[in-house]
Design a protein around this nucleic acid. Structure first.
Lengths: 201, 201
DNA sequence: CAAGTTCTGTACCAAACGGTAACATAGTGG
DNA sequence: CCACTATGTTACCGTTTGGTACAGAACTTG
């Protein structure tokens, strides 16, 4: 589905699927699913409707593709942030600082596409249970970050799990705040709250 | 706007505004703003379109009214929960237990109408900056709950603020989880994370 | 009981929605 | 150079959208 499998025999495509998906990701991210019409999509992508429908199926399937692409991209970004953050509790602070940089960017102000979608459309769309997938994937990343704050050992696993759950929920809430016109000071304050919490770890 | 001001001189209304707003609150809460059409609203309320438009103005203004009503109702519920929760850290645990009961109810599975709306429609609608209003009001309540976990004193105010910000963000994130098809076990796990955090306060 | 006022209910509107038929166009393989 | 195939492009489809005109019904006031 992502790459050409059969040899292209007909007229070649004038647009790049990946580039279109990237553009439309930004569009959906800003406007939401329901507030984005096919006309918006045509205008933003520069691709005519029949081509979009032949390539992606329907608006719903298109959005499912956008979500899938966003998920892997987003998780790669989280992986990168966690890799750059060092070990121990200090790593958590570094992660939060790196995250803040992203939160204050233009994209950051739109929050998280997955959080937005799961609020607007509930769990699943076009046979893709994205809400559960997002929670699972994201929690796994956070777990990697948090595990470093706790010494290995059976009874510490429970502590690490609790901290991971807290941090995951916290980040989801932060995305809600980021999307709803909070200014830089307010975002900084809410990040500071997690800094303070991590200091007691 | 809420109660009759002038003497009623014409034909009396067959429906109760408050009851209609309550019904439509549930409808919007479940379906979201964009996914709820005026036809849905007519069917659900039993009130015909022209009556709705004369009474509430437009779909947008109607939703703004629903949000206003929901905000005060929701804050009253938070106040009640916090009143019932005792003092000290124990009060936080009690609050979380009370909150869990609500979270597992049918309504709880829909998350929070304000969180949903702020994700779908950004900050404001029909001259009502509900996102900011919600954050402010909610944070004030949480602050009341958290203040009890900290002894009075200038330097402790900062600590209480940080805990309040953390708890507020956490609750927002929890609402996201509650709305996206999480089962009772998962919700319990995420609540447990805050129990564990509060134990160290 | 007639005038004045407000609400109900049917029937309707233009505009926008998601989606497609049909034809021109640009490539590939024989 | 001719079928063949897949694309670009225009113009269109039926349905649903948010919103209203209009006529009749129900109440108050004089």
């Amino acid at each position: 589905m992502t790459t050409r499998e059969k040899a292209a025999t007909g007229r070649p495509r004038l647009f790049d699927e990946e580039a279109v998906l990237a553009t439309l990701t930004a569009l959906f991210w800003k406007q939401g699913y329901g507030q984005t019409s096919m006309s918006d999509i045509v205008e933003s992508s520069g691709v005519h409707k029949p081509s979009l429908y032949r390539t992606f199926g329907s608006k719903e399937q298109l959005f499912a593709l956008v979500l899938r692409r966003y998920l892997t991209e987003r998780m790669a970004m989280f992986d990168a942030l966690i890799d750059r953050a060092g070990p121990g509790v200090e790593g958590v602070h570094t992660f939060l600082e790196l995250f803040e940089r992203d939160a204050l960017s233009a994209r950051g102000r739109d929050g998280c596409l997955m959080v937005m979608a799961s609020n607007e459309l509930r769990g699943s769309i076009a046979d893709f249970d994205f809400a559960k997938a997002y929670r699972t994937e994201m929690r796994a990343r956070i777990s990697r970050l948090i595990a470093r704050t706790v010494p290995a050992g059976g009874e510490n696993a429970e502590l690490a799990d609790a901290r991971t759950d807290l941090f995951t929920t916290y980040l989801l809430g932060l995305h809600v705040i980021m999307r709803s016109d909070a200014d830089a000071d307010e975002i900084h304050r809410y990040l500071n709250a997690m800094h303070a919490t991590a200091e007691q770890w």
